[in-house]
Amino acid sequence: MTRPFRFGVVAPLMTEVATWRDQARRIADNGYSTLLVPDFPLTQPAPAAMLATVAALTELRVGTWVYASPLRPAWSTAWEAHSLSVLTEGRFEMGIGVGRPGIEDELRDKGQPEVPGPGARLAGIRETVDRLRELDGPDRYTPVAMAVSGPKARALAAEVADTVTLALGDQPRAEVARLAREFRTEAGPELALAVPVVGDVVAPYMASPATDAAAWRAADAMTVLPDDPAAAIEEIQRRREEIGFSYFVFGAVAADRFAPVVAALAGR
């Protein structure tokens, strides 16, 4: 099954609030489907407040990219996600993962001396999704996007997620295609590709500022796209045909430049 294209933007609040709101409106006007916010506590307002604001301003879908599950109890994340689903009238997508590199130090800095291991983190994601389904009940369904890396995380995502994004860096095309292959079934989840590097620009909160864009490009990494919209369109179509990616997520720094990409491909 070939899924239609859709496009999302990770839009952290790094400016004056009014400027960020204007950016959200442009993202909507340019045809993107989803505005997403990262989960970096204390560096910006809380995700729920930001997403509720965007949903009130626009008709965009909104989502977390992604909740770091070790940072909060499962019941709290599920409650927040369900609340956003209700308040946005079904336009919220809960993105969740086991946490970014370095999350162990962040947890200790925030007063959590016992850091859960990988198995416990995956169990936390399962519990969060189970509690979300209980809160949603029979009359509501909150989509779940899961960021995954290892085989156990991929197996859980195949079971509970509607959208899967592979946690990628400089892995080359052939390796990414191999990892994505297990999800390419008729009933499989939507495959999302986060693209933090466009040309030589690295999107904040999507990859380390120390990312070597030239090295990733030389490795044929799937986390990089050319900054020319026409070339990007061709490459995005290739990635859907060869690997199965249909949902592409860019940083806000590329959103205006890639408006022609969205105009050409969204929904097709």
Results as ranks from 00 to 15, higher is better:
70 P>W: 05
27 I>R: 03
65 W>H: 15
89 E>N: 13
38 P>A: 03
107 L>M: 14
117 G>M: 06
41 P>K: 09
94 M>H: 05
47 P>Y: 03
52 A>M: 10
110 K>C: 10
56 A>E: 12
106 E>G: 06
36 L>Y: 05
113 P>S: 12
54 V>P: 10
90 G>V: 10
88 T>W: 07
25 R>Y: 04
117 G>F: 12
66 V>I: 13
81 A>Q: 04
91 R>S: 02
108 R>S: 00
108 R>T: 02
40 F>R: 12
86 V>S: 04
28 A>E: 14
73 P>T: 15
98 V>H: 06
45 P>T: 09
48 A>F: 07
92 F>E: 01
91 R>Q: 06
53 T>N: 13
91 R>L: 09
107 L>E: 02
99 G>Q: 06
75 W>S: 09
112 Q>G: 10
109 D>F: 09
52 A>P: 07
51 L>R: 03
83 S>H: 11
61 R>A: 11
104 E>T: 07
28 A>G: 10
117 G>Y: 11
58 T>M: 01
34 T>L: 11
89 E>D: 11
30 N>W: 15
88 T>K: 08
48 A>Q: 05
102 G>D: 00
49 A>G: 14
87 L>G: 08
69 S>V: 15
110 K>M: 14
39 D>Q: 06
103 I>R: 02
78 A>V: 11
96 I>R: 01
48 A>V: 10
111 G>N: 11
89 E>K: 05
68 A>I: 02
98 V>P: 11
108 R>G: 03
64 T>M: 09
72 R>P: 00
56 A>I: 09
63 G>E: 04
66 V>W: 08
104 E>R: 08
76 S>H: 10
99 G>V: 01
49 A>K: 10
107 L>Y: 06
38 P>N: 03
91 R>F: 02
56 A>P: 09
110 K>N: 11
41 P>W: 13
117 G>T: 06
115 V>H: 04
29 D>L: 10
106 E>T: 15
59 E>H: 14
58 T>Q: 06
90 G>T: 07
102 G>M: 09
35 L>G: 02
83 S>M: 11
25 R>G: 11
97 G>R: 01
83 S>T: 15
62 V>R: 03
81 A>F: 05
75 W>P: 13
116 P>E: 01
64 T>P: 07
87 L>I: 15
97 G>C: 00
74 A>F: 08
41 P>R: 15
72 R>Q: 08
44 Q>A: 14
60 L>H: 00
57 L>I: 07
80 E>H: 00
28 A>S: 15
30 N>P: 04
104 E>F: 03
30 N>I: 08
99 G>A: 02
21 R>C: 13
57 L>H: 05
107 L>C: 06
80 E>Q: 01
97 G>Q: 01
102 G>R: 12
39 D>L: 00
111 G>C: 12
97 G>K: 00
47 P>F: 06
86 V>P: 01
30 N>E: 13
78 A>R: 00
32 Y>E: 03
89 E>M: 12
57 L>Y: 01
45 P>Y: 04
84 L>R: 07
47 P>G: 02
37 V>A: 06
85 S>D: 14
55 A>C: 13
93 E>I: 14
70 P>Y: 12
36 L>K: 00
113 P>I: 08
72 R>A: 00
118 P>Q: 15
105 D>F: 11
83 S>A: 15
37 V>F: 04
